[in-house]
């Protein structure tokens, strides 16, 4: 177990932790960009890898140049950056996820894993409202929803839940986004958004390890 010692008042997750998370996420997106684009070329418009690569590189840059003072501010800043740089639907969706999660963390200088789990659950709900999507629609929610639920248990449980959720999108028929135009032809392909969501949660577990 890599769980950190958490004091009753707050927790052990600080600005450095959140910055490390997003830096690791940027590295993962960079590494996996071609795979994300390949998945997206099957059922989308083949820009997911390139879009996220651009977005997370911008996140890494802004966190380096103007380091925020609280965990919440790290996520809000990153979210805003994604909305303005990604150029595809994943920008406002991931941007909303991070921004809403960051707002849920408030102004605390450190937060606990449980607080992050609660804030992330709010963030995932906001993504669902923005896109009008639900669990089982073959979207990023299919990885993020289970991950937010399992984060109350541990970082590793969240990572595994996201990975399982992403794999479980393969047999689903897309009901949201461009892939939904394909109808039954979207079946048999892993959803690119759920896949990048699993990368994001894996980076979170890596940051905590």
């Amino acid at each position: 177990m890599s769980d950190m010692n958490e004091s009753e008042s707050g927790g052990a997750l600080d600005v450095a932790f959140f910055t490390r998370w997003l830096t690791l996420a940027a590295a993962a997106v960079d590494r996996e960009a071609d795979r994300l684009t390949e998945l997206d070329s099957a059922i989308g418009d083949a820009d997911h890898g390139a879009n996220l690569k651009r977005g997370f590189a911008a996140v890494r840059d802004v966190l380096e140049k103007e380091p925020p003072q609280t965990p919440g501010a790290v996520l809000v800043t990153a979210g805003r950056q994604l909305i303005s740089t990604v150029g595809g639907a994943s920008g406002p969706l991931y941007g909303t996820l991070l921004r809403r999660t960051g707002k849920g963390l408030g102004d605390s200088v450190t937060v606990s894993r449980e607080q992050l789990a609660a804030a992330l659950t709010e963030g995932v709900a906001a993504v669902g409202r923005l896109g009008g999507a639900h669990a089982g629609d073959k979207t990023m929610l299919d990885a993020l929803g289970p991950a937010a639920g399992a984060l109350g248990e541990s970082f590793e449980a969240a990572r595994d839940a996201a990975e399982r959720g992403a794999l479980a999108t393969v047999p689903l028929q897309a009901r949201k986004g461009r892939a939904s135009y394909l109808g039954e032809r979207s079946v048999g392909h892993q959803d690119p958004g759920a896949t990048s969501s699993a990368l994001l949660v894996a980076a979170l577990a890596e940051a905590a390890a």
Binding site: R80, I83, G87, G88, A89, S90, G91, P92, L93, G95, T96, R99, L130, G131, G177, R178
Partner: peptide, 14 residues
């Protein structure tokens, strides 16, 4: 469509 809708919604939420 798509990201145009979501981007404007996200900007309005800002």
């Amino acid at each position: 469509l798509g990201s145009a809708v979501l981007t404007v919604k996200a900007l309005l939420a800002e």
